[in-house]
């Protein structure tokens, strides 16, 4: 991925298997979020390919990528601020509903039944994340941690096969982080999905991820099991610096 003359992400290749929980780490500006933006179609990679379920998803727009079964959260929270918590989740159901424009206005066919069904599923999801008591609040009035959780709920509501989490634990304290990571593990089992997550906190990543790959300056410098990464020379250098220069 190049922006003008700047090569931002260079020849990064990895594979996320079915039901795998993979962590992506790297120092600031390594290109982690750019990788997410390329996967979800926000940016089109200038070279290379992204394959999902055996199909290249490079030519697709973000909403088409979402239809293929990839959903994401954002590093800087991007909730729908003027919508209630419930409606934030509701938006994710739109891509799968049958009552489109005119049947919603005339309330034709299965409209009422479908609305009720969606209401029920929203409640179930919010319950699971302990957000149900706040369902009628504006999303922007939630405490920070709950906003992060709501982003995950919203992404899950699109019923993805691959979930991309961009720093889901940012700004949380250590206990909250551990809770969240357990939750993420639970989600993976419950919804039967693969997860790719970006996280800075090494302890957290090492604890939860089955595999980790490390980016630095847009290049992949390591890829492997948490124990391997922990002892990898290059990774230690990237995070702690080169001993010679100190």
């Amino acid at each position: 991925m190049r922006f003008g003359g700047l090569t931002c992400v260079d020849k990064v290749s990895t594979v996320v298997e079915n039901h795998e929980l993979v962590g992506m780490i790297g120092p600031n500006g390594a290109g982690k979020t750019t990788v997410f933006n390329m996967i979800t179609g926000v940016y089109d990679p200038t070279e290379g390919d992204i394959v999902f379920n055996g199909e290249s998803i490079v030519p697709y727009k973000p909403y088409e990528v979402s239809a293929k079964g990839i959903s994401r959260t954002f590093q800087n929270i991007r909730l729908f601020k003027s919508l209630s918590v419930k409606d934030n989740v509701r938006v994710s159901f739109i891509k799968n509903i049958k009552s489109k424009y005119f049947s919603s206005i005339l309330q034709l066919g299965k409209f009422s039944r479908e609305e009720k069904e969606i209401d029920k599923r929203i409640d179930e999801l919010l319950e699971m994340f302990d957000l149900l008591h706040e369902k009628d609040e504006y999303a922007s009035s939630l405490p920070y941690g709950d906003q992060r959780k709501l982003e995950i709920v919203r992404a899950l509501a699109t019923s993805p096969k691959l979930l991309l989490l961009d720093e889901p634990a940012a700004g949380m304290n250590p206990t909250e982080k551990v809770d969240l990571m357990n939750l993420i593990k639970k989600i993976k089992e419950l919804f039967d999905i693969s997860i790719l997550l970006i996280e800075h906190d090494m302890k957290v990543v090492m604890g939860v991820c089955e595999r980790i790959f490390v980016l630095e300056y847009g290049k992949k410098i390591a890829d492997g099991k948490p124990e391997e990464i922990r002892n990898d020379e290059k990774v230690i250098q990237a995070y702690l610096g080169d001993t010679h220069h100190i």
């Binding site: 909403y63 991007r78 729908f80």
Partner: peptide, 24 residues
């Protein structure tokens, strides 16, 4: 309606809406 909430989501945040499968 659920479908109509899509209009409000487009107003609030186009990038997020698009990522949630909304053809903005």
């Amino acid at each position: 309606s659920t479908y109509g909430r899509g209009f409000l989501s487009v107003k609030d945040d186009e990038i997020a809406a698009e990522s949630m499968g909304i053809n903005t």
